[in-house]
Design a protein around this nucleic acid. Structure first.
Lengths: 352, 352
DNA sequence: CTGAAAGCGCTAACAC
DNA sequence: GTGTTAGCGCTTTCAG
């Protein structure tokens, strides 16, 4: 791999001249067109590639964005990573993926940050505010830090979140307009048993709204579950085994909802005839669920764009902005229906 | 952010001593325990972090693995990225993620990622060998390149693939043992219209096996489709509209199969009563499909481990190994059944 | 055992 | 316009 010095020697100029030419326009320094052409040509022939490490050492940007995601197998975050990386690429940045593995294992998360230190900025996908040491450490990595899908404002971190409350309200409006009063909630609990982040907020919003509307929430109607298909399936089975069954189940993610849908299918429980099931996120998969899932769509792309922008802007301005909260929208499909029409024959040919 | 020099000054030793202590064990050079402790303590207090750029400049490894994934929104590859990044982390590496968006031009643009060849090695997830310029570029990347989920052996690239043929054979054995003779195939076609990679191989294997067994493949039984839920749904609709319907549909991925399942549901076509549907990959979602999907499981974790190993080994040895091909295994669930029992009432309560 | 010194490849003053 | 000269933060001889 040739260095600048190599191509300088080969074209009979000094290394700094090569640097000026190859560095591109930003220099106000004029260069003899002939020299410039010669250098460019030699560089091309020798297949010169700049060494970003050396550039970085000199204080230049590495054009690398660190993205630390709690759980990339979560389809929602897979989509988020996609959106972020697309936007980052569009802006000329590449993405270094740190993987926190959804264990609040601080050591791992920490290492992820440490080794992401040569990134120009860091994006945290999914709330990590349960990891104090992690955050503390982040703070004195003197790069901009952006929390995407965060709620809790943390000093030094630009927050971009979704209005979970509004999403839950929309879903509740929808369900109640269909006559539901016996509504259960399946929330998320992280592996260590801490309930935080978006799922916690959705759960809180549900409880508050239920209280405000005077809904009775019998014992066992609010279930913690791991945010997996299996978790959702398990929760639905338990709910359907209660002596007093809910007529609707609000799952705090589509993954949980789809798992629940599957459990209903297995148990021969008709959806939405016997129970309505709604989710949150609007994964691509949601409209291909059986039946297609009523859910809440998050503006993932817009949020990703805002996140990348915040990260890159943070490079110039040196203070983190006030939180940006995006509004989600309810998407009504077929997994929700009027309460108890009758557990009937409403099978094939629909047009979802 | 303190430098080594800072902590050297603060602990009253030379910067090189600090380096020796902080660099860790690999040095055969003994250091006075007292000095060592003092340095360590000061470093801790000043929250010292090594600068990986500077390390890298000196020729040390960056402990960064470049991963270029064809399509991260494909759940299969999301899982693959997870597996690779987990294994990489286990080995002390971090992952730089490039997303090719399954487009040739993007992949070429990702040359940028390669140019930032501060990655110690590069893993390509999903076959990109249709892009000659891309490959050419790869060749003079002076780091080991590993093709995961590749078939075509390319000089200079270590290949790790799955035995698609064996998977298709297994599926065919299964379907034929159930009495199916009218079997359709839904394959993948990439956006540029080139049919390559695993999906191409599966399609070829299907055709060969069908020919070997003297199966008649009527016009329209082999369909190209984009590898999305929608693509699978669309394909099934077309197949069910044929005057001569297949009794079984082999989809070349679970994503396609699940899309097809959804279309069947919408059209009121019973699965597996009227048509059996099988997939390939065994995504986590497959067992939660309605009905649970018969498919072929790929040893994703093992392949990821092998891929990371090949990449890291490639750092020492300087030649790429011969291809490693992993065998997948058929997983029978409920989406496949004996041919034509009768399009009947076989609805709820099953126990899948 | 520890320090001094030479760079890794590149950018950015500062000269001429 | 172009060359010279310092480093960026770190590893690594080579001398003590």
């Amino acid at each position: 791999m040739p260095t600048m010095q190599d191509i300088a020697t080969a074209s009979g100029v000094s290394q700094s001249t090569v640097s000026r030419v190859l560095t591109g326009a930003p220099n106000a320094i004029p260069i003899n067109p002939a020299t410039r052409e010669r250098i460019l040509e030699v560089a091309r022939q020798m297949r010169y590639r700049p060494n970003p490490l050396a550039r970085g050492l000199r204080g230049a940007r590495t054009m690398l964005l660190g993205v630390i995601v709690r759980e990339i197998t979560d389809p929602f975050f897979a989509g988020a990573v996609d959106a972020v990386s697309t936007e980052a690429n569009r802006r000329g940045y590449n993405v270094v993926l740190g993987h926190a593995h959804s264990r609040a294992d601080e050591a791992i998360a920490l290492r992820a940050v440490l080794e992401t230190r040569h990134c120009d900025a860091i994006l945290l996908l999914g709330d990590n505010s349960d990891q104090p040491r992690f955050l503390e450490d982040l703070r004195d990595a003197n790069v901009p830090v952006v929390g995407l899908w965060w709620q809790a404002p943390v000093p030094g971190v630009s927050i971009i979140g979704v209005d979970n409350r509004s999403g839950v309200e929309g879903l509740m409006d929808h369900l109640m307009s269909l006559g539901h009063r016996k509504i259960a909630f399946v929330g998320g609990v992280f592996l260590e048993g801490r309930r935080i982040g978006d799922l916690g907020e959705r759960r809180a919003a549900f409880l508050e709204r239920a209280a405000a509307d005077g809904l009775k929430i019998p014992n066992g109607f609010v279930r913690d579950a791991q945010n997996t298909l299996g978790g959702g399936a398990e929760a639905l089975k338990v709910l359907m085994a209660l002596s007093e069954r809910p007529t609707a189940v609000m799952a705090s993610t589509d993954v949980l909802a789809i798992g629940a849908l599957h459990a209903a299918y297995q148990m021969g429980v008709d959806v939405p005839g016997e129970v309505s099931i709604v989710g949150f996120d609007d994964l691509p998969m949601a409209q291909y669920a059986t039946p297609p899932l009523t859910t809440v769509r998050q503006p993932v792309t817009e949020m990703a764009v805002a996140g990348v922008k915040a990260a890159i802007d943070g490079l110039e301005e040196h203070e983190s902005k006030s939180p940006q909260i995006f509004k989600p929208t309810v998407v009504v499909r077929e997994s929700s229906g009027s309460v108890r029409i009758e557990a009937d024959e409403r099978r094939p040919a629909r047009t979802g």
